[in-house]
Design a protein around this nucleic acid. Structure first.
Length: 508
RNA sequence: GGCCCGUUCGUCUAGGGGUUAGGACGCAGGAUUUUCAUUCCUGUAACACGGGUUCGAUUCCCGUACGGGCUACCA
């Protein structure tokens, strides 16, 4: 394929959810696979729905994911500006061209008047069957149309959909989708505030930006009939992009597509990044805050609706680019599967190198007030990563490396703590104390403890759980000797010493 | 309601006129492990229904049911 140009075109109406990220990802993958161009375009033609910060959020989210646009606001490019509000002056001429060619008309019906029609007739549609009895340049004398416009009366331009044609939408995922034009309404192209609607702006910009493939959610399929008509009436049919309408991501339970409310309701993230709304109810944690690695989230999302046809499931971005194709995208909606998302993250955490993990874990520790040395942090990550699924678990399972445990597993101490054990414990502590500071290491500690156990004919079960509780508060945790090495000699000994009276207290 | 799209294990999916319908998540059991995890093994479970077409349909066609989307001067 030659000169592929694709765009991700979100509206800045709030946080971008996971479905949007997946759309961006598929666009990105197709572009990169063919050496094409990935464009970000902000579709902010509806001033009433504009949310401050939403555009920044979109860009930050894309950056976090590593899905950097080749062109877009803040990214440059030869086809800008990339915000529709800054392209406002471009659209009217095309709407007027449509009128001049007899494919659109001025309409004066107010929103209230149309609402009234809809109340009266649930199936009311501004279209072929009704346009001749409404207030527009098709029914009014030309002089009156001029007069009304001159008087400053509000007007819109509507597309005049043909009465009886078959409109065929070619779609790479679904084949040909056919609409009867009489079912299509006369969509508004230019609003009374002078702004274009999505339909006009989208087609004009896709044309002007030389977009070759439109990859977007399935919710756009029903209006694509209008879009095809628009390309035709504007004389751009030869340049019409190829369409690919993606299956939607559905709620994990119940009915309907995934919505931001589902996140709060089910305690799962539906946004890449957190979003601070005006109220707690409007604020959400994202995949980032839940502790996902962006690569893992992307790998997961790639598979919600797409599959390479092989049994490989873990893909780096370059591998995804290599394997991706629109033909492999499924047709049916995919239920959001958070368990699978966590599994992906676990796979990535397990195999990530320590330095990479450290960059994600450091901020976590810093919020707790700790600023570990890089080498220590990396060892920490290496020691714990096998039992971590979500990043915050590094703290939950490893806090004792930084601070004394808050709770101790008294029950398990009570089961094992008696005079004999106490004596052995004390002796072992002294044996460990005898290791030179600069000799303190996992193998050395291991060897020392092993010899001690051999000498006293002890099984691991006799002392290990108690050592764990003394050091970490719990019988669970990473490999004991690795734990001791990382903790260091002084802390290890100090905790063993202080455990003695504490354990005595548990059985008293 | 109308229009459009879809339907393989609970979930994500592979497959495709003749297969023991494959994988993954989850769940259950087992092995390894000083603990907890990890890892490994085993098991669990699906072609929505009814008609065609065909020697033969899960696969093709038509209906039905169910699910989803759209139906704004929102995108």
């Amino acid at each position: 394929m030659e000169n592929i140009r694709v765009r991700f075109a979100p509206s800045p109406t709030g946080a971008l959810h996971i479905g949007g990220i997946r759309t961006a990802l598929y666009n990105y993958l197709l572009a990169k696979k063919h050496g094409g161009t990935f464009i970000l375009r902000i579709e902010d033609t509806d001033q009433s729905r504009y949310v401050p910060g939403a555009e920044e959020y979109i860009i930050e989210a894309l950056r976090w994911c590593g899905l950097l646009p080749d062109e877009g606001p803040e990214f440059g490019g030869d086809y800008g500006p990339y915000r529709q509000s800054e392209r406002k002056h471009l659209y009217a001429q095309y709407a007027e061209q449509l009128v001049a060619n007899g494919h659109a008309y001025y309409a004066f019906d107010t929103a209230e008047a149309l609402d009234a029609h809809r109340v009266q007739d649930k199936t009311f549609k501004y279209g072929a069957a009704t346009r001749l009895r409404l207030t527009n340049s098709l029914t009014l004398p030309a002089s009156e149309v001029q007069q009304r416009i001159a008087n400053g009366e509000p007007w819109v331009i509507r597309l005049q959909v043909p009465d009886n044609e078959l409109v065929v939408v070619p779609d790479l995922i679904r084949g040909e989708v056919t609409f009867r034009s009489k079912e299509l309404d006369d969509k508004v192209m230019l609003k009374s505030d002078g702004m274009p609607t999505y339909h006009l702006a989208n087609i004009v910009d896709d044309y002007l930006m030389r977009i070759t493939h439109v990859i977007r959610g399935e919710e756009w399929l029903p209006s694509t009939g209008h879009h095809v008509l628009l390309y035709r009436y504007l004389g751009w049919e030869a340049a019409m992009p190829q369409f690919a309408h993606l299956p939607l991501i559905l709620k994990p339970d119940g009915k309907g597509k995934l919505s931001k409310r589902d996140g709060a309701r089910l305690g799962i993230p539906v946004f890449p990044l957190g979003w601070a709304g005006d109220t707690p109810e409007e604020s959400f944690q994202g995949f980032r805050e839940f502790g996902f690695l962006p690569q893992a989230m992307l790998n997961f999302l790639a598979f919600q609706g797409w599959n390479p046809g092989t049994e490989q499931e873990i893909f780096t971005i370059p591998e995804l680019i290599e394997a991706f194709s629109l033909e492999k995208i499924g047709k049916s909606g995919a239920r959001f599967d958070f368990e699978k998302a966590k599994w992906y993250n676990q796979q990535y955490v397990h195999t990530a190198d320590a330095a990479t993990l450290a960059t994600f874990v450091r901020p976590l520790l810093e919020t707790k007030g700790y600023h570990p040395e890089p080498a220590f942090l990396e060892s920490f990550c290496t020691l714990l990563r096998e039992r971590v699924t979500l990043l915050p678990e590094f703290w939950e399972k490893g806090a004792f490396f930084f601070t004394e445990p808050k709770e101790y597993d008294a029950k398990n101490v009570q089961k094992r703590w008696d005079a004999t054990t106490r004596n052995l414990f004390e002796q072992l502590t002294d044996t460990l104390r005898a290791i030179a500071d600069n000799q303190w290491s996992e193998p050395r500690v291991h060897q020392t403890v092993q010899e001690f156990m051999d000498q006293h004919e002890l099984k691991p079960g006799a002392l290990f759980p108690l050592l764990r509780i003394a050091l970490a508060g719990s019988t669970q945790g990473p490999a004991l000797f690795g734990m001791m090495e990382l903790l260091g000699k002084s802390k290890t000994i100090a905790r063993l010493d202080s455990a003695l009276p504490r354990f005595d207290g548990f059985v008293a």
